Simulated scan of single mutants.
Amino acid sequence: MQGPIGVFDSGYGGLTILRELVKQLPQYDYLYLGDNARAPYGTRSFDTVYHYTLECVKHLFSKGCHLVILACNTASAKALRNIQQLDLPHIAPDRRVLGVIRPTTEVIGTFTDTQHIGIFATAGTVLSESYLVEIKKFFPDIHVVQEACPMWVPLIENGEFDSDGADYFVKKHVEHLLAQSPDIDAILLGCTHYPLLIKKIRQFLPASIRIINQAEIVAHSLTDYLQRHPELEAKCSKNGERTFYTTDSTEAFDRQSAVFFGQEVKSLHQDLGSPIK
């Protein structure tokens, strides 16, 4: 039986990925799950993120998804490998879970001439060193520096991403990143929330430095993946439908989601049952 493509995030940020998936692959059905009741994931331990992410993946499987995208850098960094290697072979060997880090690192070398790249990300993603490990596999000569930006997600989710109050925190982290490597000519926004800060980030960056759009990369990668796996593609339903679930308040989710997704959203509540830790 066919089912939608599942898209998971700890909250709202994954909607920037879903927005691009819908733009490039509008024919498919998508089911989005935001675990807003337990967000943010960026400051949580590896074990907690893994437990929460696996629970959400299982829920998406129960809703008929044969393919799930972890549209969250923290979940991709802290949970994806364990889910793929330890869990899927036992719970759903015919289903697949993909992340956002691998497709990005496979092509990131094409964005730099100086071979120096910077990454803005959550503390969890930075500490995992997932980007450093994966980039080294594909582009061993590239020098990568990272900067954790713990205040950026709260700023964005409180509607302050375009305010004067955001300037201090954006400028601070831009300066910290560039101080690590003055030869940086490309910067990856390694959190799906951060595209909402692009205008602010650009204000404090030299015009010559490129900002990498992760959502476009992920959408292109999914297109290629479905073409290479026709047996899985055939299990993805194609009615152009989008369904949204949140583990927290639907009213708050719908209000915030319009900023990330670019259009109005009408969500449903989903109680996963695990307590907030």
Results as ranks from 00 to 15, higher is better:
Gln2Glu: 15
Ile5Gly: 10
Tyr12Thr: 14
Gly13Gln: 05
Ile17Met: 07
Leu18Ala: 07
Arg19Gly: 05
Arg19Lys: 14
Lys23Thr: 14
Pro26His: 08
Gln27Phe: 08
Gln27Lys: 13
Asp29Thr: 03
Leu31Ile: 13
Leu31Trp: 06
Leu31Arg: 12
Gly34Tyr: 02
Ala37Phe: 06
Ala39Cys: 06
Ala39Leu: 05
Tyr41Gly: 01
Gly42Asp: 02
Thr43Asn: 12
Thr43Trp: 04
Phe46Leu: 11
Asp47Arg: 11
Tyr52Phe: 09
Leu54Trp: 10
Glu55Met: 05
Cys56Pro: 09
Lys58Leu: 13
Lys58Ala: 08
Cys65Leu: 08
Leu67Arg: 07
Leu67Ala: 11
Ile69Thr: 10
Ala71Thr: 14
Asn73Glu: 04
Ser76Ile: 07
Leu80His: 05
Arg81Cys: 13
Ile83Trp: 01
Leu86Ser: 08
Ile91Gln: 01
Val97Arg: 00
Leu98Val: 02
Ile101Thr: 00
Thr104Lys: 00
Thr104Gly: 00
Asp113Trp: 02
Ile119Thr: 00
Ile119Leu: 01
Ile119His: 00
Phe120His: 00
Thr125Gly: 00
Val126Lys: 01
Val126Asp: 00
Leu127Phe: 14
Tyr131Ala: 01
Val133Leu: 06
Ile135Gly: 09
Ile135Gln: 04
Ile135Pro: 03
Lys136Asn: 13
Lys136Arg: 15
Lys137Phe: 07
Ile142Gly: 08
Gln146Phe: 08
Glu147Ala: 10
Ala148Trp: 04
Pro154Leu: 02
Glu157Arg: 13
Glu157Gly: 03
Glu160Met: 14
Gly165Trp: 12
Ala166Lys: 15
Asp167Thr: 13
Asp167Glu: 14
Asp167Pro: 02
Tyr168Arg: 09
Val170Asn: 05
Glu175Ser: 13
Ala179Thr: 15
Ser181Pro: 12
Ile184Ala: 07
Ala186Cys: 07
Ile187Ser: 07
Ile187Asp: 05
Gly190Gln: 08
Cys191Trp: 08
Pro195Ser: 11
Pro195Val: 04
Leu196Ser: 03
Leu197Arg: 15
Lys199Gln: 09
Lys199Glu: 09
Gln203Phe: 10
Ala207Phe: 12
Ser208Asp: 15
Ile211Gly: 11
Ile217Phe: 10
Val218Ile: 15
Val218Lys: 04
Leu232Cys: 12
Leu232Asn: 09
Cys236Asp: 06
Cys236Glu: 08
Ser237Gly: 15
Ser237Tyr: 03
Asn239Glu: 05
Glu241Gln: 14
Ala252Cys: 06
Arg255Asn: 03
Ser257Cys: 06
Ser257Met: 05
Val259Tyr: 06
Phe261Val: 12
Phe261Pro: 03
Ser267Asn: 12
Ser267Cys: 07
Leu268Asn: 08
Leu268Val: 10
Asp271Gln: 10
Leu272Met: 07
Ile276Trp: 03
